[in-house]
Computed example of a mutant assay.
Amino acid sequence: MNVSRRRSRGRVAHRARAHVAARRPRGPVSATEARRALQAFQRSVESGDVRGLLDVLAPDVVLLGDGGGIKQAALRPVVGADRVARLLASRKVEVAAPSLHPAEVNGWPALIVRSGGALDTVPTVRVDDGLVSGLYAVRSPEKLSHVQQATALRR
């Protein structure tokens, strides 16, 4: 990959992260509101229901992927409910019978996604006004090893 292309991708990612960081909730999100949004998100992802995803995603939702250069992940931020919903629905088709379990990761609502029993992805979600406004989907094996150790201790 040429240097200018790498810089361009870096700028896009930087702007998207800044956009997500700059958005502040209008008020604190209650645990109940976050749980409801996460449950609706989980149901829609499990069923591949694009309409359900569009109902729970904020119009300007941003999805950031982190595959650590090892696992496949979105290389650029995915912005907009329609684009994020289509990506998540297509992922459902690619992954054979994933299991999703709600969790809290670094203080954020999250889902633990296992495929074939193995830890596959941990998307953390940001909820604003009852809608998922940000997703950070970690697939990096190095980062997931910390989640694997923490979930193993709880059993």
Score class of each variant (00 low, 15 high):
151 T>N: 03
151 T>M: 08
93 V>H: 00
152 A>E: 07
126 R>P: 07
76 R>A: 05
23 R>H: 10
59 P>Q: 07
140 S>T: 06
67 G>A: 12
96 A>I: 12
31 A>Y: 11
95 V>P: 07
114 R>A: 03
23 R>N: 06
35 R>M: 06
143 K>Q: 15
47 S>G: 11
97 A>M: 14
5 R>L: 11
3 V>W: 03
47 S>I: 04
45 V>F: 09
34 A>V: 14
138 V>W: 04
103 A>K: 08
129 D>E: 00
119 L>C: 02
94 E>I: 05
78 V>Y: 00
3 V>Q: 07
142 E>T: 09
84 V>R: 00
133 S>T: 06
54 L>N: 08
152 A>H: 04
9 R>W: 06
48 G>L: 00
11 R>W: 10
93 V>C: 00
91 R>P: 01
4 S>Y: 14
137 A>S: 05
71 K>S: 06
56 V>T: 15
92 K>F: 02
43 R>N: 12
100 L>H: 14
145 S>V: 04
78 V>G: 01
72 Q>K: 08
83 R>W: 01
48 G>R: 00
137 A>E: 09
134 G>V: 10
100 L>R: 14
5 R>T: 13
117 G>C: 09
41 F>L: 15
127 V>T: 14
139 R>W: 08
88 L>P: 02
139 R>D: 08
125 V>P: 07
56 V>A: 12
32 T>M: 06
16 A>Q: 01
44 S>R: 12
119 L>F: 00
93 V>Q: 01
119 L>D: 01
15 R>L: 11
46 E>R: 13
45 V>W: 03
56 V>E: 11
26 R>M: 09
150 A>F: 06
6 R>W: 10
21 A>E: 15
75 L>C: 04
88 L>S: 03
5 R>D: 13
14 H>W: 10
39 Q>N: 12
99 S>T: 15
115 S>Y: 05
65 G>V: 08
1 M>I: 09
34 A>T: 15
104 E>T: 14
1 M>Q: 11
35 R>F: 07
3 V>Y: 03
40 A>P: 04
22 A>Y: 08
125 V>Y: 10
83 R>K: 11
138 V>L: 07
21 A>H: 13
28 P>E: 04
64 L>F: 04
22 A>N: 11
136 Y>G: 05
106 N>V: 02
33 E>S: 14
118 A>S: 13
86 R>H: 14
136 Y>V: 08
64 L>C: 04
97 A>N: 15
148 Q>E: 13
36 R>G: 05
141 P>T: 02
61 V>Y: 02
68 G>V: 06
60 D>Q: 06
68 G>I: 06
4 S>K: 15
7 R>F: 11
46 E>V: 11
107 G>V: 00
47 S>Y: 03
132 V>S: 02
47 S>T: 12
141 P>I: 04
39 Q>H: 12
151 T>I: 10
132 V>W: 02
31 A>P: 14
66 D>F: 07
130 G>P: 08
9 R>I: 05
97 A>D: 15
133 S>E: 04
77 P>K: 07
45 V>C: 05
40 A>M: 07
144 L>T: 02
66 D>N: 14
58 A>M: 01
129 D>V: 00
97 A>H: 15
90 S>K: 01
135 L>D: 08
141 P>S: 05
107 G>N: 00
93 V>I: 03
61 V>R: 01
69 G>M: 04
